[in-house]
Amino acid sequence: MKKIERMTKDVICATDISKKFKNRTVLKNCSLNLSKGEALLLLGENGSGKSTLLRILTGLLKPGRGVVTRTASSIGYCGHVSMLYEHLTVLENIKLFCALSGRANVDEEQARDALNSWDILEAAGRYPTEISQGQKARVSLCRAFLTTPDLLLLDEPDASLDACGTETLLYSIQQALGRQAAVVIASHRGDLYRSFVKDTYKLSGGELTT
């Protein structure tokens, strides 16, 4: 009964997730769940399967075995690639993805404010090919947070950020948690997030341990 009650509260629940790429097992029976307003930290070495697990949680990748149940109505995802259209300017990309996320009410001023909060307003009129890797990461994060999703999946969000960007990231995560969003963060820098995460998981040899 308690399990059912727990599951109804969960924004995301992954049970016994396994994934193989050819003969290489990347994930073995991984299970996790997360409720509204909670953050979960995923640690692990390079190639341990963090990104694969996050892509499975977003629905971009199908698990070989296991079930992912999402009750979140909207997802914000920030991965290793920018996921931006290269022929659209930064501002046009932000507006496009807001419209696609059902947030067509985000007007140009709000989009500019959001870019300003990530300190990339000066790049608003430039194309993604004309900005640096760090700026692309900021644009991706800005887009993920601006759509105010119920579930945020952040794959090494701090990887390309400087100290100022990292500060904005931490502030934005706390804001998201404050409006009851669930947040999953995959990172090598556990120390950054430990103050507000509910659980810390470690991925090693394809297995998820607390």
Partner: peptide, 17 residues
């Protein structure tokens, strides 16, 4: 091809559109 460049199409899928 331009949909796949920089994973833009994945952004569309994740956006829930």
């Amino acid at each position: 091809h331009f949909e796949r460049a920089s994973g833009a199409i994945e952004g569309v899928v994740v956006s829930g559109a």
